[in-house]
Amino acid sequence: MNKLRLKFSKNGPVKFIGHLDVMRYFQKAIRRAEIDIKYSEGFSPHQVISFAQPLSVGATSDGEYIDMTVNSMVSTSDVMDRINAVMNEGIEILAIRELGEREEKAMTAAFAAKYRIKFRDSLKPDFNWIEEFEKYLQNDRLPAMKKTKSGEKEIDMKPLIFEYSFDREKESVTLLLSMSSAATLKPALLFGAFFASLNKELSTNALDVHRIDIYKYAEDGDVKYIEPFITDDINTRFILNG
């Protein structure tokens, strides 16, 4: 048996398909591709697959992940070619990596996510949001009310923002945000609090959100860092302890 991690993109009209429908879509695609997928045991066997953190409806991505176990395979490239051959436009397998026996599932290993965010053309703010947002991010604290299972609680978003950069020509910001089981910061919460700090209201669906990748935590000696789930480029690492 082989444990695999697949990286895939989600673009175009399929961005409006919810997470559960994407799961069902992959299950059907794996069957059509005749992948020798492992099934669970019991009265109702199901494919042994799991996804990383769900993507919000309406957002696009070039960094989504699915873990699956196969009984046999020719090669990872063969698996990728077979699945891509039966995929509809908008979803594409970009890379596959074999996992070690002790590696965590993508769902639990996710530590951060990188996003590129701009405003939809018809819903752009009537002020220089990049200038104001840059000032906002420099505050010592960034309080926000976050909904939890038990109600609402105030959090400080500042420690959950690892890195940011602006592209003024394209009127966008790239943000590396926490996405761990302990603390997840979604772009909508951050921008909602930003607008509230200016006594403004963020319009529904105003944000054009693109997830670039999902990162995992790793250590190399005394160095603690995060890097994309699938990468051969050391330059994609973000050092956590300087």
Rank of each mutant, 00 (worst) to 15 (best):
S172G: 02
I66V: 12
S178Q: 09
S172H: 08
M73V: 01
G42Q: 12
L99T: 01
S40A: 10
V22M: 13
N11T: 15
A218G: 12
I91R: 05
V86S: 06
I37Q: 08
F133K: 02
R97D: 12
K15A: 04
A95N: 11
L142W: 08
V86I: 06
R32L: 09
S150V: 13
L190Q: 01
F119T: 01
G63V: 04
F191E: 02
A95I: 02
L189H: 01
K153M: 12
F51E: 08
K3D: 07
P159V: 09
S197D: 09
N71Q: 08
S61N: 06
N241H: 06
E201T: 11
S165F: 07
K186G: 05
K186T: 05
F26R: 05
K10T: 02
I239S: 06
R237S: 01
N11G: 07
A110D: 06
L55W: 05
A59Y: 11
K124Q: 13
L160A: 07
T184V: 07
Y217P: 02
K200S: 01
I161M: 07
N84G: 04
A183I: 05
V223T: 12
V48H: 14
L137I: 08
I96V: 09
N84Q: 06
A29K: 15
K224L: 12
N139M: 13
D121P: 00
L142P: 01
I83H: 04
I93S: 02
K3H: 10
H19S: 02
G90T: 05
A183V: 04
I35K: 07
P143D: 11
E169L: 09
P13K: 09
N235Q: 10
D121V: 11
V74M: 10
K114I: 08
K105E: 09
L123T: 00
E169C: 03
S150K: 15
L94I: 05
R82H: 00
Q53H: 11
K105T: 10
G42C: 10
L4V: 00
V70N: 08
V48A: 13
P13V: 09
K153G: 04
Y39K: 10
N235K: 14
V48K: 15
V209Q: 13
S172Q: 12
R237W: 06
E163I: 03
T108L: 11
S172R: 04
V223E: 13
F229L: 09
Y225I: 03
L207T: 03
V57R: 09
F229K: 05
F43E: 12
E134L: 08
A113V: 03
S50N: 13
V86T: 03
M23V: 14
V86M: 05
A196I: 03
E201Q: 14
K3E: 09
A29R: 15
K146V: 06
